[in-house]
Amino acid sequence: MTSTKQLVKLIIADSYRPLWQVLKIYAGIMVLVAVAIIHAQWGQSVGHMVWTIVTQGLIILGFFYFVYGLLALKQAVLSWQDAHFVLLPVSKRRFFTTNLLVRFLVPMVNAILYFAMLLVYMAIVKPFVNAKFVGFNPQNVSEVMPIIGKVVLGTVFVMIGLFLLVNIIGLAANLGMSRFLSVSSHWANVTITAMVLFIGLAVFSVVMSASVDFLSPMVGDAEWLDTVVAIVLYVLMVAGIYGLFAKFNDAK
């Protein structure tokens, strides 16, 4: 049997694959952006130029991380049917648990990394450009931190739900297609990608448009019943994914 440590390593390597691609494209684009900024701000101080590049870079990086997140999500959905993983000498239950956790944690860790970068950026911003941040008073960072903490926790909670939802829908749709329609794996792949992108975008836009008011009740201030209902729902989804994987799987 493959050791869990090895399995985790292999899954992590697979989850990072889209990230390397995305980062390579990002690096390419950043070179272009930097050139454009240097050209546009020629004559200004070097510090100013660097500053603009860093700011733009972080914003664009956010977008690329988002794309990576969606690709990792797609990768996660397809992994349940990926023969080169499914056929590894690991029990179904161990593969299921490890795969679910690692496939969720790797993009999550990356997202947290990004937010950490934003925080560092803000901490650096504070002494230099006090006035520039609208709606954010740097003097009150200590007051803002707990709110940020809540937002992060709430986001993670929503992300878990989103991750589970996309996985269960994606797997069910994929299995249904290969079982009953005998759709070729290529088209199943394309369809599933499109679907995941669509659901991902839809949910993400909902999450983003919702304010801190929406997220904060999910932790702390929330009615405990809401939290319980959500957790029960999550457990059901996990059981559902396991059921589909263990009872109906069709690895390619």
Binding site: M1, A83, H84, L87, P89, S91, K92, A251, K252
Partner: peptide
């Protein structure tokens, strides 16, 4: 699962 571990089979290298 124990049987699976003793079977060598590679359906493809599509991945």
């Amino acid at each position: 699962d124990a049987l699976k571990s003793a079977v060598a089979f590679i359906p493809n290298l599509n991945w």
